[in-house]
Nucleic acid binder design. Structure first.
Length: 156
DNA sequence: GCCAACGTTGGC
DNA sequence: GCCAACGTTGGC
């Protein structure tokens, strides 16, 4: 099983939105490296940290679980939508999405400054200078560390 | 709102 | 294929 960190802007889609809806397609990804993570590298059952970016505060606020196979990102076919992709066809989609379900909401936000201050998270991809990927792999140890910092040793 | 970092676009 | 211009991300 792999582990991931998914960034989202809470003004657009928050951990509370995911908790309310139960599941969602993680879509509107318009970066090819992230597309490959979503489409090819993720597997059902993989656990994900949910990170709120462009927020107050920024940090990890909970978890989700990959709950199905990759699907064509439906937003690429919506003419007029900001995520519309004119190069895409139903036969040959350009962008892909992944269904995820709500996992847990942390008791508190594990803030960016805490992540940076934790020696065990020195290798965390999302902390590296210049990183802009909205989906990054994390190790099982990093996942467990952050989950414990959030006050949830186990999901749920 | 600022700006560093990086990806994408498009002229050549 | 190069690279300048432009757009986006995301912390601050």
């Amino acid at each position: 099983m792999r582990h991931w960190l998914l960034k989202t802007e809470p003004d657009v889609y928050s951990i509370d939105d995911l908790r309310r809806e139960g599941r969602t397609d993680w879509d509107r990804i318009r970066n090819h490296q992230v597309k490959l993570f979503l489409r090819d590298a993720m597997a059902t059952g993989d656990r994900c940290l949910i990170y709120h970016s462009n927020a107050e505060p920024t940090g990890v606020v909970g978890t989700a679980v990959v709950c199905g196979a990759a699907v064509p990102d439906a937003t690429q076919f919506r003419r007029g939508d900001e995520s519309f992709e004119p190069r895409a066809t139903r036969q040959v989609p350009v962008w892909w999405a992944r269904p995820v379900r709500f996992g847990s909401r942390f008791d508190r936000c594990v803030e960016l400054a805490e992540l940076r201050a934790e020696p065990r998270l020195r290798g965390l991809a999302t902390l590296k200078r210049g990183n802009r990927l909205s989906v990054t792999p994390v190790t099982a140890a990093e996942f467990a560390c952050i989950e414990a910092m959030g006050g949830r040793v186990r999901g749920g």
